[in-house]
Design a protein around this nucleic acid. Structure first.
Length: 104
DNA sequence: GCCTTGACAATTC
DNA sequence: AGAATTGCCAAGG
C-alpha cells in the first residue's frame, strides 16, 4: 500500500454532503501537516470524490471553472456556503465522530 | 540521491 | 485583508 493510497482511502470515505480539509485528510492518513500530500493523492487518485476536499476554513482552492464546478457539485450534495467558503461548521466531516457499528 | 512538483497551512508584515 | 515566507511529505525524473 503506497502512502498516497492511504490518503486516497480517507478521501474515498468522505460521505455525501460532507467535506474535509487537505490538512485533515493528511492528518487522518497519518501525515499531520502534510496537506500537500493530499493534493498529490487527488492527482493520482481516480474516481475519488475530489470535490469533497477543500482548503482550510472551507475555502475552495481550485480556481476558475474547476472551482466553480467543485462548488456546484458540493451544493448539489446539500453542502451550503457562506460567501466563497463552505460552512465547515455544518459540513466538516469528523471520522472520529463516526460511531462504530455493531456493539457488543 | 538530489531537485522539482503539488488543488496546502499557519504565521507574519 | 492581502501578499509573502516557511514548513510539511512523498513520488517521479
Amino acid at each position: 500500500m503506497s502512502k498516497l493510497a492511504e490518503l486516497q482511502r480517507v478521501i474515498a470515505g468522505i460521505p455525501r454532503g460532507k467535506v474535509i480539509t487537505y490538512g485533515q485528510v493528511a492528518a487522518i492518513a497519518g501525515f499531520p501537516g502534510a496537506a500537500r500530500l493530499t493534493v498529490r493523492a487527488l492527482y493520482r487518485g481516480a474516481g475519488l470524490p475530489w470535490h469533497r476536499v477543500v482548503a482550510a476554513g472551507g475555502r475552495i482552492a481550485l480556481t476558475g471553472q474547476e472551482g466553480q464546478e467543485q462548488r456546484l457539485r458540493l451544493s448539489m450534495e446539500g453542502v451550503t456556503f457562506r460567501g466563497d467558503r463552505v460552512r465547515m461548521d455544518r459540513h466538516a466531516w469528523n471520522p472520529k465522530v463516526r460511531k462504530q457499528r455493531r456493539g457488543s
